[in-house]
Amino acid sequence: MATALTLDALPHQKSEPRRRRRERPATLTPGQSVGAWRVERELGHGGMGSVYAITHKTFGKRAALKLCHRGVLGPDFTAATFLREARVVNLIDHPGVPDVFATGSYDGRPYLAMERLRGQTLGDHVRASTFSTLESIALILELCDILSAAHASNVVHRDLKLDNVFVVDACPALGLGRRVKLLDWGVAHVVGEPDPLCGVLAGTLTYIAPEQVRGDALTPAADVYSLAVLIYQCLLRRPPFA
């Protein structure tokens, strides 16, 4: 089972990009407790944090725990910035946005407890050439619907890319086909509100719109640019500016 979260996008200073920590952060172990949750296993890790399969100790609810690496936190990316994702996703009323239902702190590191998904990222599928052109277009249309709902709620994702689009496995027993979820809303911007990442170039360079690089006011158009890059990659199996 692939993790429901991708973790490699870090904000970067425009004048001097921040280097990621090379050392492997300390991991949680199976059976360890984090608040009301019990850790089952690690699902994945990246530059920003690690993700664990967890179960609620009282209710038995299964979820995913996104735990921030200590080395990521600093003046440009605080614990409050990390936890802000919980509020942002709850501004958007769409099943394609993963639910975040608890936040907290463990050993001085903020965490999110969120919906656990089964499947793979769209990036994994593209690299494996899993889908036909028509299947890819169907998934892209689902993604467009998610973005439309986000933009209607004045939310700009700001880090749209293949590895932040998750394709949930089909479940024939429940009559469910493949579904798309858009992940990692941690650097999203709410139009009309102060931007906690103002002055920081957030996102993934292959997909970043020119106005983001210039430091212009962020609008949904930035996501549309990233979407165009994603569609190009999805259909042609390579980035447009390789």
Rank of each mutant, 00 (worst) to 15 (best):
M1T: 13
A2R: 10
T3C: 14
A4H: 08
L5W: 12
L7C: 06
L7G: 02
P11W: 04
S15L: 15
E16A: 15
R19M: 14
E23V: 08
T27M: 10
T29V: 11
G35T: 09
V39Y: 04
R41T: 06
L43T: 01
G44Y: 01
G44L: 02
G47R: 06
G47D: 06
G49N: 01
Y52M: 04
Y52Q: 01
I54K: 00
H56M: 03
K61L: 04
R62N: 13
R62F: 10
A64Q: 02
K66C: 07
L67D: 01
P75R: 15
P75I: 12
F77P: 07
T78D: 07
L83P: 06
R84P: 05
N90Y: 00
N90D: 15
I92E: 03
D93Y: 05
D93P: 00
P95M: 04
P98I: 04
P98E: 08
T103Q: 13
G104E: 03
S105P: 00
Y106C: 06
Y106F: 11
P110K: 01
Y111N: 03
L112W: 02
L112T: 01
M114S: 03
L117T: 01
Q120F: 00
S136G: 05
I137W: 04
L139V: 02
I140W: 09
I140M: 11
L143T: 04
L147I: 09
V156P: 07
H157S: 10
D163W: 09
V167C: 06
P172I: 08
L176S: 12
K181T: 04
L183Q: 03
D184W: 06
A188R: 00
D195M: 10
L197H: 15
L201A: 13
T204N: 15
E211S: 14
Q212T: 14
T219V: 11
T219K: 10
P220T: 07
A221M: 11
A222N: 10
S226H: 05
V229Y: 04
L230D: 05
Y232K: 08
Y232T: 07
L236K: 08
